[in-house]
Design a protein around this nucleic acid. Sequence first.
DNA 1: TTTTTCTTGTAATTTTATTTCATCACATTA
DNA 2: TAATGTGATGAAATAAAATTACAAGAAAAA
Lengths: 289, 289
Amino acid sequence: MVLEQPPASLVPALQKLHAARSTVGSATQRVIDFVLEHPNDVIHLSVTEVAEGSNSSEATVVRLFQNLGFKSYQDFKIRLSQSLVPTTRSFERRIESGDTAYTIFQKVFATSSLTLSDTLEHLEPAALERSVDLLIRARRITFVGVGGSGIVALDAHHKFFKLGLFCEAVPDPHNAAQVAALLGPDDVMVAISHSGTTQDVLHAVRIAKDNNASLIALTGLARSPLSKLADVTLNTTSPESRYRSEAVASRIAQLCIVDALVVALYLRDEERLGRHWQRARTALTEKRV
Amino acid sequence: MVLEQPPASLVPALQKLHAARSTVGSATQRVIDFVLEHPNDVIHLSVTEVAEGSNSSEATVVRLFQNLGFKSYQDFKIRLSQSLVPTTRSFERRIESGDTAYTIFQKVFATSSLTLSDTLEHLEPAALERSVDLLIRARRITFVGVGGSGIVALDAHHKFFKLGLFCEAVPDPHNAAQVAALLGPDDVMVAISHSGTTQDVLHAVRIAKDNNASLIALTGLARSPLSKLADVTLNTTSPESRYRSEAVASRIAQLCIVDALVVALYLRDEERLGRHWQRARTALTEKRV
DNA sequence: TTTTTCTTGTAATTTTATTTCATCACATTA
DNA sequence: TAATGTGATGAAATAAAATTACAAGAAAAA
């Protein structure tokens, strides 16, 4: 078995295992498979137990991890436990009637954090690139969303506007359809709806599509009517929770997506957009004490 | 040494050690001190090495962790390594000109996540309780903020409104002062300003204080003119970052604070607020496909 | 003071990790 | 086809680490 010295390992422990899988013998492969299938258990298992679980021998287990560049089996377990940490277990996030304000804050923040990482994990790099492509070329950008999603639309408008882009937010369902009717093939509509089934939004979206405008969907359900109509879908995912609707938690992720889009656009055309942004910024400073 | 069975432990491993310190003997204290001083090294040390490092015996080390509720010394090391998982280092969050869209997303999301945990860490439990007290008793709640903070105000209004509370958002600086003039001693103003120095907001806040209204400040700088006027200050903290103003990152945390406040209020008076919330919810369902 | 309780370190024991070594499987070459 | 080399493997030996048993000593209670 030949293995290069692994790079300073930003890579979580499990990826190393996966990468090595094809270059090792059958017994060692069984060990790798076992570890990949039960990573959370392995943290608490001894060499002997792993050997038994994978129908191999202790020696094979020990050698595997040494060859992978870990100082010892224990060393591997430490690394592994560190890469497995992020999921605050759901029972630790569940809000109970008797919780103190601070406990509630802890749990709400934990859920939000989890929503962010879950969402990031499920976003497709290709979809992001396409979104940026569409937005940077757009003549005009319209953000549509009602209710809670309307807030996201306003936020997006606020930020895109600072970049000097021609854009508008339509948080009012009545106006949405009318604005959609004005869009053309060079324009982009960004439709925001957690459920992806909001009638008012769908109505506006259909009109926009009829006019050949491009459509980016920001939604919480991958297979919704809205995402079927969209050129690109950016999905948020969030864990269930009592006392706090999924929609609310996913809004945090949507705002974060907007933030990231703004930064990505900025870097695509720093020359033009940077100038606008600076001007908007200095105009604000005068308003401070 | 008497120790209650530790609660489901939202608490990182080290806090347990710290809490137990005063209830144990001198040798055990030396062990605790050693671990608290070198947590990152301990992860890789054996029982014997820890015993040597702390001038105690192996038995003392092993017993300490068993008494603290860990299954074994190894079990403790696993927990410890999980609580020590290095936060994404700042150079891994810094956005560079050449970054791909996906990389930018990773970095923006990482920064947001960090902002959330930083903010939570700095929030004072007492301040949270007082905020909830003030809000639940309020006759009328006014959210004030301009620009980006105006979005937070709107979001807060949207959510508090669903609980059936008498509230309003004033994202327009002109109206802010007028609305503030209408407030009385039973009312609460929630002022949102990242810098805590926004003239328009301060103006409105002073008027509100003159009318003896209570003031909750949502700000990003602890020692700002705004927080001096406030009865309670809820602070957001966020790491520096290029291409993305601190204000933008901290907005995520502000929204999260609002979310948590809503949940906390709800649980304080589930009877009354739950009824309202249910009604608002069912009214929405009809708008879906 | 005496008795009891709790803490501690030494040493024995058990568990766990690592190394050694003989064997086997497979590929290459004669 | 047989001979040879290479690397993977597991049984067993060894080493290391963790845990427990126990007796001595300190502190608290009677």
